[in-house]
């Protein structure tokens, strides 16, 4: 029996959760929400995490019903992400590891998403689409690494959505992407937008620029904000489904797993589902509790690392803004 606690704070969510051998004991989270039209910046986000981190920690411990002495390993997000928020949360993780005399493990955020997705859905060896505000990658496992088959060459898909929400001054509560998704459901008129797949990679910055430059004019021409949300979603999700399909075909896999905050978009899930059906593949996705950044995913990925014997020297428990998915050797997978 191994119990892990995980600390996540790489972007505007702070999450702390406990997991015991694949069983989620607690999963507490707060989101830093900015006013409409504004994004979140590192300094203010770190201040938000600073304010609530100890409260969230207390909550997570209480809800888990676990005594501190029974925790085996403390895990935190080592990267990738924004420096200041990462550092704030890592400092608390380091301090409690010292206070409680527990080993400390730094976890790759993307690996956290993948392993949590596999745990919750039961997907064995899926082709993974990892889509969030900061990351866009098509990933498949091969020989002890999660390999990146395709990725964005500029901004993340979630960043594109978030920033378009700012153009429309949509609310950031609960998230800009959620509000775009709701608006898109009412969209009728499809606007043809730049479609930007380059081999296995995707690009969103040009599409975003197009939207930023043309929205005012398009609204005057009779397109509604809902039409624009709908058209944007259809276009960028089609790009993601296309590259995922190619990776799926290449790997001869029959499972697709969608993880990351954008992964709870039901339209994306629906489009991916259609593609999977045509290929006799199975689609796996999770809901907002586990899709959106959370502490349990860090605890669970750390649990996998810990069980397979991974340990870290104290000097290595730093944070790093850049940390690629394929830098981590997946010591816990034998296939």
């Amino acid at each position: 029996m191994v119990i892990a606690i995980g600390f996540e704070g790489s972007a505007n969510k702070i999450g702390i959760g406990l997991v015991q051998d694949g069983k989620v004991l607690s999963n507490c989270r707060r989101t830093y929400i900015t006013p409409p039209g504004e994004g979140f910046l590192p300094k203010e986000t770190a201040q938000h995490h600073r304010k609530v981190v100890l409260t969230v920690l207390k909550e997570a411990l209480e809800q888990s019903g676990i005594e501190i002495k029974d925790i085996d390993v403390v895990c935190y997000t080592k990267g990738p992400g924004m420096g200041a928020p990462l550092s704030t949360v890592a400092i608390v993780a380091r301090t409690v590891a010292q206070l409680w005399n527990k080993p400390l493990l730094g976890v790759n955020h993307c690996i956290g998403h993948i392993e949590m997705g596999r745990l919750i859905t039961g997907a064995k060896n899926p082709t993974v689409l990892y889509v969030s505000g900061g990351n866009t990658q098509v990933i498949a496992y091969a020989r002890k690494r999660y390999r990146i088959f395709g990725e964005t060459i500029d901004i993340a898909v979630g960043n594109c959505l978030d920033r378009f929400a700012r153009v429309l001054k949509l609310s950031n509560d609960p998230s800009p992407g959620y509000n775009i998704e709701q608006a898109a459901k009412k969209g009728q008129k499809y606007l043809s937008l730049p479609y930007c797949v380059k081999g296995m990679d995707v690009s969103f910055s040009g599409i975003l620029s197009y939207m930023e430059q043309h929205t005012e004019k398009l609204l005057k021409e009779g397109y509604t904000p809902e039409d624009l949300c709908y058209s944007l979603q259809e276009t960028i999700f089609a790009m993601l489904v296309e590259t995922t399909e190619r990776a799926l075909a290449h790997c001869g896999s029959n499972e697709v797993l969608i993880v990351g905050g954008v992964g709870c978009n039901e339209r994306l899930q629906e489009m991916m589902g259609t593609m999977c059906k045509e290929r006799d593949a199975k689609l796996f996705a999770t809901d907002e509790r586990f899709c959106i950044d959370n502490g349990v995913m860090i605890a669970h990925a750390g649990w996998e690392m810990f069980k397979s014997g991974t340990r870290m020297r104290w000097e290595d428990t730093f944070i790093t803004q850049r940390f690629r998915t394929d830098e981590v050797e997946t010591t816990w997978r034998d296939d």
């Binding site: 600073r50 981190v53 100890l54 920690l57 207390k58 501190i68 002495k69 704030t88 400092i91 608390v92 301090t95 409690v96 590891a97 010292q98 206070l99 409680w100 005399n101 527990k102 080993p103 400390l104 340990r311 870290m312 020297r313 104290w314 290595d316």
Partner: peptide, 24 residues
């Protein structure tokens, strides 16, 4: 300030010294 507040809320240390510095 954050470390001190964490200390106040989740301390004192359970042992005299930390035993996991050179785990790897």
């Amino acid at each position: 300030d954050l470390i001190t507040e964490t200390f106040d809320n989740f301390g004192p240390p359970v042992s005299e010294s930390y035993s996991h510095f050179n785990n790897a």
